[in-house]
Write a protein that binds this DNA or RNA. Structure first.
Lengths: 165, 165
DNA sequence: AAAGATTGAGTTATCAATCTTC
DNA sequence: GAAGATTGATAACTCAATCTTT
């Protein structure tokens, strides 16, 4: 994948209008830009995580655990927080457990629930990995102001998209 | 995947700051929100495309062809425009060709190049599919103003992320 | 019956390696 | 040798089906 020689989203916006989709041009361009940005960000993040033997999917799971008081969460709750299918969580925890970063433990009260518990090695690794990711994105040189605007608008779009019947 | 009972990005932003990552909170929250928005949008779009036997990846390829004058492009050029790996384009065209929506044709002057050419069936289908996608996103009720802001800021972030060494 | 987790099938993405043509 | 396309391996996600526990 090589660099583009033009602004892809401006081009997309222009194309939609040029082909008679004036009403939808703004929405389609927004969706397209988000899809494209995610591709680029994911690639960049995974590059920075590769030295740690992590992918973004597994990093997110570790980070989520590290943010809890006990470093432990039911698998189902992790899927809900990360908005991914239960199967994805099972898969991610399988790999993290194999690497010694997480352990599975039964829930004390509910026999159906499996807890993912951060190991010491996992706790150390997620901190180092976070530094690596931050290094990538602090180097982008975007103003906090703009970043907050992105969060606010994109989250609203995502929330609407998630709840539309 | 069930709905969330809280704002995931606001929560993420709060978490980052609460754990001492003040400097990186804005950047990490922006990246997280984009990743999450893409998940949700992709799911919603694929739902609307399922009746047409399309996925977003294949729809994008069709749409790209439909936007060209001749309805034909070299596979490599498609990969560059869509910012995906060459293998992904080969795979997408394989499936589209199998479904009779696209045909492969050799390039007149350069024997290395394979052209993807939109068929009549493909041209009809992509128009119908576009209506379906538009129906999803026009129902979001976001102002064009906000959507344009998303495009502008997100595209800038993506461009920076793509070019950072 | 319902909830939580797992498994298997099907898609798509990436990357490395290969093959053909320039 | 370099460019364009394909193939095979790996990873991740979704969905449907299944199993255990409540």
């Amino acid at each position: 994948v090589t660099a583009l020689d033009f602004d892809p989203t401006a081009e997309a916006r222009r194309q939609w209008s040029a082909h008679g989709w004036n009403d939808a041009a703004a929405g389609m361009a927004a969706v397209t830009s988000i899809m494209r940005a995610q591709q680029v960000c994911l690639r960049r993040v995974n590059e920075s995580l590769a030295p740690f033997g992590l992918t973004f999917a597994r990093y997110e799971a570790l980070r989520l655990l590290a943010f809890t008081r006990m470093g432990a969460l039911p698998l189902g709750k992790m899927g809900n927080r990360l908005q991914v299918n239960a199967g994805s969580i099972t898969n991610a925890i399988d790999r993290l457990e194999r690497d010694g970063l997480v352990e599975r433990r039964p829930h004390d009260d509910d026999g159906r629930v499996v807890l993912a518990v951060l190991t010491d090695a996992g706790r150390v690794l997620v901190e180092d990995a976070t530094v690596a990711i931050n290094n990538v994105f602090t180097s982008l040189g975007l103003a906090d102001n703009d970043l907050d605007t992105i969060v606010s608008l994109v989250a609203r779009l995502a929330e609407r998209a998630a709840t539309v019947t």
